[in-house]
Design a binder for these strands. Structure first.
Lengths: 215, 215
DNA sequence: AAACTGAACTGAACCGTTCAGTATTGTTTT
DNA sequence: AAAACAATACTGAACGGTTCAGTTCAGTTT
């Protein structure tokens, strides 16, 4: 009934940290449990006492590093453009950020070949910021600042894609690393904002300015 | 001096094809040479006669599938917008395309942890289309259709990023899979085109830039 | 004569399990 | 309060069974 000795949270965290570091440095599939045990200083037997699987460990490690920064997810200053920029520029604490970024390529591949894990990753990690952006976009539409027929799903890709791209392809090239967050936001804003100075109508329903957006 | 029996190009290609298929289906690191031998119908001894390494095989397979579509890399119809859209929409033959797309996540991860291979991948595969886009952008700048201070590197990320993003994150969600090529091109065009009268009403975030500056 | 096959083989790594011994905790008794 | 106890966690090392990259080789085909 009474647990005589509680699990050492110290050991638990040491393992998680070591696992994250190794996953980020050498990749998920190529990091062995023995390596994690050795790096963490926790015996492998104990690791398998805390987690059933390598995948279970990976899952908790991933949720841990992506859950450390539970910021107020929503942003609404009234200025849609500013909100967009804020969300795209938002970054986790420096320490996390490095690990998270180095982890991304592995997660992309691992998720591609482990659909279950992939769903979890997208659902728990990549979806929240997406939702945040979607809310802002919908607000923009209802305020008439974006066209009513804006495809939100495509818009999210337009906003976030450039950052992902830069992260993957400009990694080795230190010459080209401007922060794409504000750039991408500005790019999108200039392309879709209907807030021209001759049009100040704020009420949402307006005649859609005929955009030859095809289709 | 003269080889009594030439290497079977048939075997060579069977191995390459089988390797590509397996790499795409199960990932690079988790595909064994034995599996490739069995799937190709070529004995493992022969495979190691044709390639020194698993990595050598991977490299040639990658170059093969990305070299099959040597199209006229350059596009210049005079209409910058059309050229951009064309390049972003351009696709390899259907057969290749499926394999290439499924291969991408693995290549991202493998390149992240094998810098040498990564350089080769970027240089031989991802760089050519980038260069093509850059040429178009420079042409647009020199013709005054884009602002002279446009950061080309960021612009490429703005154009290609959304497609990469959609490819990675919208894979499992069949509801939203519009072709982002034209959308991304239109998005960029609307944000940066300077000499269209449908955009002059935009409030001047950008100052009227001076004439073309050579780079 | 060289390329092929099929099969065996090496050496190393891997995951996950087991186990005897030890350390650390909560509980009970003195 | 101190000592004894019971229950559990941890260690370190080993082990089984598998998988892998790469090699070797006797025999077959071209």
């Amino acid at each position: 009934m009474s647990m005589a000795r509680p699990r050492s949270t110290q050991a638990h965290e040491k393992v998680l940290n070591a696992a994250l570091e190794l996953f980020a440095e050498r990749g998920i599939e190529t990091t062995s449990m023995d390596a994690i045990a050795q790096a963490s200083g926790v015996s492998k037997a104990t690791i398998y006492n805390h987690w059933t699987d390598k995948e279970a460990l990976l899952l908790e490690a991933m949720l841990m590093i992506h859950g450390l920064d539970r910021e107020p997810e929503d942003v609404d200053t009234g200025d849609i453009q500013r909100d967009l920029t804020t969300v795209l520029t938002r970054k986790p604490p420096d320490k996390c950020d490095a690990v998270r970024n180095r982890l991304t390529p592995s997660l992309i591949a691992y998720s591609a070949f482990h659909p279950e894990f992939g769903r979890e990753w997208r659902h728990r990690v990549t979806e929240p910021p997406r939702q945040c952006i979607k809310r802002i976009l919908r607000r923009g539409i209802s305020r008439g600042q974006f066209p009513a027929d804006l495809d939100i799903e495509s818009a999210v890709a337009l906003l976030l894609g450039p950052m992902l791209y830069a992260h993957i392809f400009n990694k080795e090239d230190p010459s080209r690393k401007p922060d794409l967050g504000p750039i991408s936001a500005a790019n999108f804003w200039r392309a879709h904002s209907q807030n021209r100075k001759d049009r100040v109508a704020e009420q949402g329903i307006k005649k859609p300015t005929p955009r030859s957006k095809e289709r």
